[in-house]
């Protein structure tokens, strides 16, 4: 049983690290700000959840797990809030995507 939990937590940690690195690669590779926003949110959702879940499995049923869950919930709420705040500030400042699809639903924006 312990072995299964260990292997599962290794899988979580490695895949979480993978998403963190992918998010960082996207932050560098993507052409403009609006696309980079999505790359950063890969780190903030997938990476954070998987790494914290992996650490939870390592800790077992202790107070450490409670702390990890509280950190996870906090990041779960504040992550999207700060992403929204950055996107909103950029929209207000007049920044617009470079390559925007022309369609009827987007005409009201510009």
């Amino acid at each position: 049983m312990q072995d299964i939990l260990n292997i599962l937590s290794y899988v979580f940690l490695v895949s979480g690290t993978f998403f963190v690195v992918v998010g960082a690669i996207g932050t560098v590779r993507f052409p403009d700000f609006w696309a980079r926003l999505h790359a950063a949110s890969v780190t903030e959702s997938g990476g954070v959840i998987l790494i914290l879940a992996g650490l939870c499995l390592q800790a077992g049923w202790t107070l450490v797990t409670v702390k990890l869950i509280i950190i996870g919930l906090f990041l779960f709420i504040t992550g999207p809030t700060s992403t929204h705040a950055i996107a909103n500030a950029a929209l207000v400042s007049g920044l617009r995507p470079d390559t925007i699809v022309k369609n009827p639903t987007s005409d009201k924006v510009n």
């Binding site: 998010g23 932050t27 980079r36 950063a40 700060s82 950055i86 920044l95």
Partner: peptide, 9 residues
């Protein structure tokens, strides 16, 4: 905003 996003990340 790129920089703020980078700092947050």
């Amino acid at each position: 905003y790129d920089r703020v996003l980078a700092v947050n990340s």
